[in-house]
């Protein structure tokens, strides 16, 4: 069987992990390589590295981080954040990313998805889709630029279009739930999972293993977890054993 993936996400700015990762037993919890190795050892099925640098210098550091993380990581690595051109995606793949995630740039220029997909294959290209419930119009609209811009674009239609253009996976973040600990937006997961054939990685709002199980039940193939892991509340291994007790088969 294809096991559901538990994916920790590291936010990296200027070469350092931000959002305060707190591992009990790490000397330097700001070092991306140390954090990546810790998650690898906990049994993470994949790692997402999100570059939240705001400057070109910071982005240069991100390539170094990808190279260093790649050297120690024997599981898949997805890199996103500020991937704006074909060249920047190629640089990340060359540095050691297995997949690149595109967000705002793909909304601005959807042909980026097809160009990259033709060259590297769909399994290499992830659409990072940030969606928020909207007041009027479609049930969920696409938001970009870390939630600062509401586009009015129908999230379900955008997911379908992106998959047609060659995105091989959708990293779906609920803007409403992100950071709340209230659980994933299950209706959003269901709606997007029903709109496309590519796998969905659910993100935004997880607090405990029941939230993870609910997202998988709603149609996600993988779940992203950030704050619950960084805060040291739990580990990937603990989440997996709880899921397993609840009847969700995970990779041993």
């Amino acid at each position: 069987m294809l096991y559901p993936r538990i994916i920790p996400c590291l936010d990296v700015r200027d070469g350092r992990v931000v959002k305060g990762v707190r591992f009990a037993n790490l000397r330097d919890a700001g070092d991306p390589v140390t954090c990546a190795a810790a998650y690898r050892d906990q049994g993470a099925d994949e790692l997402v590295l999100l570059d939240v640098s705001a400057t070109p210098e910071g982005r240069g550091n991100a390539l170094e981080v990808v190279r260093a993380v790649r050297a120690v990581l024997n599981i898949p690595l997805t890199v996103g954040g500020g991937v704006g051109t074909v060249d920047s995606a190629v640089a990340l793949l060359d540095a050691g990313a297995d997949k690149v995630a595109l967000n705002s740039a793909a909304v601005a220029d959807p042909s980026l998805l097809s160009k990259l997909s033709r060259r590297f294959g769909a399994q290499c290209i992830v659409l990072a889709l940030d969606a928020a419930r909207s007041e009027a119009g479609p049930p969920w609209e696409v938001v970009t630029h870390s939630g600062k811009r509401r586009t009015g674009k129908d999230a379900e239609a955008w997911a379908r279009r992106a998959a047609e253009l060659g995105a091989g996976e959708i990293l779906l973040t609920s803007f409403d739930r992100d950071g709340t600990g209230l659980g994933y937006d299950l209706e959003l997961i269901q709606a997007i999972a029903n709109s496309v054939r590519v796998p969905i990685v659910a993100s935004g709002g997880a607090k405990d293993s029941r939230h993870l199980a609910a997202a998988l039940e709603a149609g996600a193939s993988a779940v992203l977890a950030a704050s619950i892991l960084h805060d040291g509340e739990t580990t990937v291994a603990q989440l997996k054993s709880k899921l397993s007790l609840a009847g969700v088969e995970v990779r041993p």
């Binding site: 069987m1 294809l2 096991y3 559901p4 993936r5 099925d45 769909a122 399994q123 091989g168 996976e169 054939r197 590519v198 796998p199 193939s221 993988a222 990779r251």
Partner: peptide, 12 residues
């Protein structure tokens, strides 16, 4: 059909 494609993730 109707499997999700790509077949992405860990399998036996």
């Amino acid at each position: 059909e109707p499997l999700r494609v790509p077949h992405m993730g860990w399998n036996r």
